[in-house]
Design a binder for these strands. Structure first.
Length: 485
RNA sequence: UCCCCAGUAGCUCAGUUGGUUAGAGCACCGGACUGUUAAUCCGGGUGUCGCAGGUUCAAGUCCUGCCUGGGGAGCCA
């Protein structure tokens, strides 16, 4: 709970886990005793109210409670998280308490809807949920760093992907999906990485990459539709502009080959008359303009501050305003410095490379729905992806890039189903052949075309809720430098 | 592992070319106000300036090293 007061009246925001309601303790209604008790309530005290529910359009949920009785269950003292701004690190140190607050509450409600909608979609489509093991004897793709553990005196690693096991299960049950934790020991310090995150990995027998992309698109639309139906209130708490989410369920996702994507990134090809370079140059001009106005506003206020007859409280107020404007100015100047680098990186993008974060942002900013980029250079993708017929340099992989700078939320492919080619690919990647023997069995005994993809739950939640840092999308995040609480 | 930035009160931050006794807002306590939404107004005090060393008459401020955090690259969902 949280409290505000005026003379003879107290406003208390009460939370019960399902939502929030304002409770009003009016001295004339509740009586002197109850009113005095309510004045002693502190932030996050546990309390029980009796009272009348009254319609009030001004309030969240449209109602408030006029309190007639009050029972203090537990008085909270010196609650650390105040109603004022805190830094992300302080909040994460108090994550066990921070979860009680509105923003985390709204994000977790949406996360819950997403999890439910994912199961709902696959169950209705006839998929079997079948989870992959978490302890694994080897690195699946050989590139990422894994967490090493002791498994009865043997080295074991925490899984970085359940995909190979998913393929085995798809050969057994036709269409399956895994839904479990995944671990990466990379010392990544960016807003889109976690050491421990949840991944959904469907795998379908007799699916080529076209069918795979059809499924991905229907899947994303279905989950987003469910969030829009169930979580309007939470989205409004988060001040999420839902235009792009609504587009996502209505419009088809553009499907772009890697070859075309490269041309678009370089600014050689336009999308509805706009190019990446043009957009970035526009952004540069707008940022410059904003910096100019900020500078002028700061100068104006500093002139005001030079008048030392000014009342102290007023002076402090203006000083604070100036400080926060200087803060914004610093951020914008930082951004302005980076824009030419982004333009440079886009213009000189080298064919055959994977997209960097800035390239992805440049590309996706031209669209108002998620896009699918397919047919990737073989050398930047995993060994198990199937070659594109007639293009031995390309594989049938697909990445879904979310709009608004969220980057890759889905990665998938058609899998190589030919034993000999797969063995060649394992050799090319210098992977230990012996640990893949069971996987190669899948190509020895009734190998069929099959495809699948992986969706990172937290990145998906981050995009839907428009959360800047992925670590706010999981109750207790684990990443380089954070193991507590 | 590499590059950039930061570390000042419980929290968020200011602190100018090195110069007297280091500041503000919030939180907290008291008071004022019948309707607040981060309420507002008045009063009340709080510091190992991340750590270690150096330069200097003088260091929060400059230099070196280390630690911690943030952003990014790599890697990826």
């Amino acid at each position: 709970m949280n409290r505000r007061s005026s003379k003879d009246i107290e406003f208390i925001i009460l939370r019960d886990g399902t939502g929030f309601v304002q409770c009003v303790v009016d001295k004339s209604e509740a009586g002197e005793d109850i009113y005095q008790k309510s004045r002693k309530l502190s932030q996050e005290s546990a309390v029980e109210f009796k009272g009348k529910v009254v319609k009030d359009e001004r309030q969240i949920g449209g109602v408030e409670v006029h309190v007639t009785d009050l029972n203090l269950i537990h008085k909270s003292e010196n609650y650390p998280i105040t109603n004022k701004p805190h830094g992300i690190d302080f909040l994460l140190d108090h994550r066990h308490l921070w979860l009680r607050h509105r923003r985390p509450w709204a994000i977790m409600q949406i996360r819950n809807t997403i999890i439910y909608a994912i199961h709902n979609f696959f169950q209705k489509e006839g998929f079997v949920q079948a989870d992959a093991p978490i302890f694994t004897p080897n690195a699946v793709e050989g590139t990422t760093t894994l967490f090493e553990t002791d498994f009865y005196d043997r080295k074991a690693y925490l899984t970085q992907s359940g995909q190979l096991y998913g393929e085995a299960m798809a050969m057994a049950f036709s269409k399956i999906y895994t839904f479990g934790p995944t671990f990466r020991a990379e010392k990544s310090k960016t807003r889109r990485h976690l050491s421990e995150f949840w991944m959904i990995e469907p795998e379908m027998a007799f699916y080529d990459n076209e069918m795979n992309m059809d499924l991905i698109e229907r899947f994303i639309k279905s989950v987003v539709r469910e969030v829009l139906e169930k979580n309007q209130f939470e989205l409004s708490l988060l001040e999420r502009d839902t235009t792009i989410l609504e587009n996502t369920i209505k419009k088809p996702f553009p499907r772009i080959t890697y070859d075309d994507a490269v041309k678009i990134i370089r600014g050689e090809k336009d999308v509805n008359g706009k190019t990446t370079i043009g957009l970035l140059e526009e952004l540069k001009i707008n940022t410059e303009k904003r910096i100019e106005t900020l500078k002028n506003e700061i100068a104006e206020r500093e002139k005001l501050l030079a008048d030392n007859k000014m009342k102290e409280s007023k002076r402090n107020f203006i000083q604070n305003k100036v400080d926060s404007m200087k803060h914004e100015l610093k951020e914008l100047q930082e951004k302005l410095k980076n824009i030419p680098l982004w333009i440079d990186s886009a213009k000189n993008f080298e064919y055959g490379e994977d997209f960097g974060g800035a390239d992805e942002t440049a590309l996706t900013s031209l669209f108002d729905v998620p896009i699918m980029v397919y047919n990737w250079p073989k050398k930047v993708k995993a060994f198990y992806m199937k070659e594109v017929p007639g293009r031995p340099d390309l594989v049938k992989g697909v990445d879904v890039l979310a709009p608004e700078g969220y980057g890759e939320i889905v990665g998938g492919s058609e899998r190589e189903d030919n034993l000999d080619i797969l063995i060649e690919r394992i050799k090319e990647h210098n992977l230990p052949m012996e640990v893949f023997q069971w996987y190669l069995d899948l190509r020895r005994f009734g190998s069929v075309p099959h495809s699948g993809f992986g969706l990172g739950l937290e990145r998906f939640v981050a995009w839907i809720t428009n959360t800047k840092h992925i670590r706010e999308t999981i109750p207790f995040p684990r990443y380089y430098g954070r193991l507590e609480p």
